[in-house]
Amino acid sequence: MNAAVQVDDLTKRFGGTPALRGVNLAVAPGEILGLLGPNGAGKTTLVRILSTLDTADSGTARVYGYDLVRDAHQVRALIGLTGQFAAVDKDLSGLDNLEIIGRLLGLSRRDAKVRAAALLERFDLVEAGRKVAGGYSGGMRRRLDLAASLVGRPTVLYLDEPTTGLDPHSRAALWDTVRQMAYDGTTVLLTTQYMDEAEALADRLVLLDGGRITAEGTTAELCARVRGRTMRIRPVDPADLPTVAATLVAAGLTGGTVVADAGQYQVPVNSDEQVTAVVWAIAACGVALAGIDTGTPSLDEAFLRLTQSEASLVAAGSEVSR
């Protein structure tokens, strides 16, 4: 099967800083691909290149076989883009915003109006349709922005962090829309920093870090790559942390770290036997405990472990409550 979006060895530098260092990617028709990555990973750069807004330094990318550079016009006829910042005209009404895009895409005045009205209805903006978009709430503006990217019935839709800054209700509504569109055959490339969003929507995930793809697979596959669990032991008196550490090392449980800020010791465990061994060892050394728990890696943790350096992992790990 031919890919809807095919990316081969794409590189891009801004000044001296590499933003993309050889990205390879294929999105199947009708698939929702989640593109995950920390800030500065190159997600937006990739989306901008795939939207013909920027050109790569080397490598090629195609949308349904059309080259991004040579056949840019054909590519633009196939894609829809919703960027990180809602790109709507504040001084125009919601209706006018959509109608103008319809007119630009070659619809007659009448058809553009009909299409605009249908999209307003779909995105629950009928009442606000005649008011200027400048007065819309953040959620309404996002919905209008998404509606604007759908006027041309795109075959491939890029959603660049579409729910950043939205309330839970608006997020859920947007997720439903994206699911419906994918079901109807639209290919979706979704960038997000929210693991729950990726988990809820994406058929497949790609992790982009430092301009490279560092991992790829379904949610289950990515979580499985980060095997094992983490045990967290919190003594009543943080001064006992070195004792805890020494006890566990003596018991053969290595690889642990002291997280001084959280007053806890973290140690990776790979089996139920090891969990039991930790409990026995701590009980035997007589340190008074305020808490002890075991966490299975969530997609959050998988993401952190697969993308971040050891130092930031420990810092972030103390915030992960599970």
Binding site: L78, R179, A182, Y183, D203
Partner: peptide, 23 residues
């Protein structure tokens, strides 16, 4: 999570994808 598009059953039930005509 609720039932998502990830499940093979849902994937298989999707309508066929139509390759678009050129502009």
């Amino acid at each position: 999570m609720t039932a998502t598009v990830n499940s093979p059953a849902v994937l298989a039930s999707r309508p066929p994808v139509v390759v678009p005509a050129s502009a």
